[in-house]
């Protein structure tokens, strides 16, 4: 009898208990029971959620570790490649020196970069020069460059050294500014002159293949600028009919209005072989 109606008795018991809980829900005993029930199961939730949080943090850190390991491998690979390149360059340098000695060629000029900060601008000379405070003493005529889009680009040249330690840098765009340059794509030489807001590349041969978009870089002649520093890009080619030469308008690569930090390339005496 009892076995047959065990389920019904169980239901009766649970129903009785639930009805008792509901009827005396305001009673201290029932409230204590509810609180006890709550606190009996609350830790399991905290333990579970805490474990999940720990697992999440562990996974995130593992991910960071793996990414760091990957970066370390990349750096190691680059470091090895650079060591190989350095060794190769050393061999080439020695070979070059041997040939230069054989033909008695003068050495290339050597440059020492000096960092500087743009200190001010003269209202009377706003578009033509900037005042720079270099970290070390520099000389008149030293080249001034900056880095734009991870490429060294030419800004101008030191014109005056002031008694307060600042130097006046004559910008490329000034009409008194000039530097020897070449078209990077074709290797043709010319002279870059300042034209106010832009530059003009002069003395190109009439059959020159220069075209709009070509990059113009320093030629490295004269020992003021090292070769292959970006000067600007050709915006237009001027061809006069019957003329023996071509000219090109060049847009400066450096944003001269926003330059804040510069490198001054102090010219050192050539390396003695």
């Amino acid at each position: 009898m009892f076995q047959r109606h065990k389920a019904a008795l169980l239901l009766g018991l649970t129903s009785f208990l639930c009805l008792a809980f509901l009827s005396w829900s305001a009673d201290r005993v029932v409230r204590s029971l509810q609180t006890a029930f709550h606190y009996l199961w609350a830790p399991s939730t905290h333990v579970l959620v805490g474990s999940l949080d720990h697992a999440g943090r562990f996974s995130a850190r593992l991910g960071q570790l793996l990414r760091a390991d990957q970066r370390a491998r990349q750096f190691e690979s680059r470091w090895l490649q650079e060591r190989l390149d350095t060794a190769r360059l050393r061999v080439l340098e020695e070979e070059n020196k041997k040939w230069s000695d054989l033909y008695h060629l003068p050495s290339h000029p050597n440059f020492r970069p000096v960092a500087g900060r743009v200190w001010g601008r003269d209202a009377a000379d706003w578009f033509h020069s900037v005042l720079v405070r270099p970290g070390e003493p520099v000389s008149v005529g030293d080249a001034v460059i900056t880095v734009d889009n991870n490429r060294p680009v030419v800004i101008g040249q030191v014109r005056d050294v002031n008694p307060d330690g600042t130097v006046r840098v004559l910008l490329l765009t000034d009409s008194f500014s000039a530097l020897s340059a070449k078209v990077d794509r074709t290797g043709e030489l010319g002279l870059i002159e300042g034209r106010g807001s832009g530059l003009l590349m002069n003395y190109l041969f009439a059959d020159s293949g220069i075209r709009a978009g070509d990059e113009v870089v320093t030629a490295g002649l004269g020992g003021v600028y090292p070769p292959n520093l970006l000067v600007g890009r050709v915006s237009d080619v001027l061809e006069a009919s019957g003329s023996l030469s071509k000219r090109a308008l060049v847009r400066p690569a450096a944003r001269l209005g926003t330059v804040r930090e510069v490198l001054i390339l102090a010219c050192l005496p050539p390396l003695v072989p």
């Binding site: 239901l11 649970t14 709550h38």
Partner: peptide, 27 residues
Amino acid sequence: TTLGFFWGLAQDAFGVTAFGTQGWLFA
């Protein structure tokens, strides 16, 4: 019935219904 009773009470203890409501209904 037994699990309904205990699971229901657990829900009641954590939920907004009066203690015993879901315990009874689930049972």
